[in-house]
Design a protein around this nucleic acid. Sequence first.
DNA 1: GGCCAGGACACCA
DNA 2: TGGTGTCATGGC
Length: 234
Amino acid sequence: MKQELISIYKILLNHFGPQGWWPADDEFEVIIGAILTQATSWKNVEKSIDNLKNERVLNPSGLYKISTKKLAGLIRPSLYYNVKAKKLKSFVNFLYKEYDGNLNLMLSQANEKLRTQLLDIWGIGPETADSILLYAANKKTFVIDAYTRRIFYRLGFIGKNSSYDEIKNFFEGNLPKRVKLYKEYHALIVKLGKDYCKKEPLCKECPVRKLCKISLINLPSSSPIQPFPYTLSL
DNA sequence: GGCCAGGACACCA
DNA sequence: TGGTGTCATGGC
């Protein structure tokens, strides 16, 4: 099992190249983006991030002071803006209550402690919590999203009704525990999902299966799938 | 013009 | 716990 998971990672990295996640200027922006991108395309989130930057409120004190109503107006492009404004507020309120607004102090907490605290915040579920832990706090936590479920179910690694924690444990138990690997792997899964794995039902010509099977053997030079010269550092 | 995004929560049985 | 409705913009 370990080798297959690593092989798929290598295939994806060769095929797509490094994804450079998370696209953000600082850790706070990572967290805000993680909340805004819930069930929303990243392009829409970028517009909201720009709005927040232009208003100079993309920082703990800025979001702490701004009204929920005005905040909702700024993040309008990223869908469900009223509930997301409340979610952002609830996170920042937590940050001030527990850590006096000190983000670095929050991020320096132990993995499990911080995960429990994040999950306790209204509006932050398992995927958002793990995204914050991995990409903002650099904790060894694998992120599971809809693409991960869909793709690895189709590849036959997990059951249709596997729980979030079951899938998370599957990845963490079968991969070298490296933050850099976790970050890149999840980003590559999302890239694969966006490009090849929409919601259509499983079929024999599933592009994901196809990609993996083709890439597991030596590619002829005439193959349309050309490996990129990226080196691996697991 | 329709479909659906890098989820989470409330409410129901 | 599992299934379903709600939220409500903009890109493709």
